[in-house]
Amino acid sequence: MGGQIGSATVVAGRSTKEAIRDAALQLFASKGFDHSSLREVADAVGITKASLYYHYASKVDLLVAIIEPMFDEVRDQVERLDDLPATPENVREVIRERLHSTLANRQVGALCMRDTVAIVNALGNRYPDIIELHHRMCRWMAGPGADDDTLLRAAAAMQVLSTAMMSQEIVPATDVDHVETTLLNAALGVLYPPR
């Protein structure tokens, strides 16, 4: 049973807006963005489609509301790198932080991996900014004055981190901490290969 707090209805301890976002994430992740309808989202929350439109003007707006917080976290992390030296200890901590965040948002990450075209279209002119954030993190991980090989290893280490997005499907019974440790060690092994 929902109650009113300000202008948002509370559904089982969550606002209607949060409940819509959570239901949409479940549907988009299981069925795909293009194969899910706003009617299904509204039904999953127990509201009318008109009520859903009160909170989100379109399915694309709803998709953006789902994925944007994850990209905001990446942006915040990359912005903090400007004042942080790229020492091996700092690189390890930044990679660990990135993995921890990605694993906490695995369902969103898996959606991004599966529905890349829908994500790129939804983000529109913001997509190049996201690519630039990725490049900035790679350059920071490689360190100042890095040669081509080191830059390529940094980019490859970032690809290792992206495995976290699909880790629940790859190893569904594996503990999240184990996944984080394994991918952290793999990324560091790519970035700093044994001599």
Rank of each mutant, 00 (worst) to 15 (best):
residue 146 A to M: 11
residue 74 V to D: 04
residue 155 A to Y: 12
residue 129 D to G: 15
residue 90 N to S: 08
residue 44 A to N: 08
residue 146 A to L: 09
residue 2 G to T: 12
residue 186 A to D: 02
residue 11 V to K: 06
residue 47 I to F: 02
residue 94 V to I: 15
residue 56 Y to P: 03
residue 87 T to F: 12
residue 123 L to Q: 10
residue 189 G to S: 07
residue 80 R to E: 12
residue 174 T to R: 14
residue 49 K to C: 01
residue 139 R to S: 14
residue 25 L to P: 00
residue 31 K to Y: 14
residue 154 A to Q: 07
residue 76 D to M: 11
residue 116 T to H: 12
residue 162 S to E: 10
residue 102 T to S: 10
residue 38 L to Q: 04
residue 135 H to W: 14
residue 94 V to E: 06
residue 85 P to S: 09
residue 20 I to C: 02
residue 189 G to K: 04
residue 20 I to L: 11
residue 4 Q to C: 06
residue 50 A to V: 02
residue 32 G to D: 13
residue 186 A to Q: 06
residue 185 N to E: 08
residue 119 I to S: 03
residue 18 E to F: 04
residue 143 G to D: 09
residue 43 D to C: 08
residue 67 I to D: 00
residue 129 D to H: 15
residue 43 D to I: 03
residue 171 V to M: 13
residue 65 A to R: 04
residue 24 A to Q: 00
residue 194 P to I: 14
residue 37 S to E: 10
residue 37 S to R: 10
residue 155 A to N: 11
residue 167 S to H: 03
residue 195 R to D: 09
residue 54 Y to S: 06
residue 154 A to W: 10
residue 129 D to N: 15
residue 153 R to K: 11
residue 64 V to S: 05
residue 22 D to L: 08
residue 150 T to K: 13
residue 157 A to W: 08
residue 4 Q to A: 10
residue 20 I to T: 00
residue 120 V to C: 13
residue 195 R to H: 06
residue 120 V to L: 13
residue 42 A to V: 02
residue 84 L to C: 12
residue 123 L to V: 05
residue 49 K to P: 01
residue 114 R to W: 05
residue 170 I to H: 04
residue 164 A to P: 02
residue 62 L to H: 03
residue 101 S to K: 09
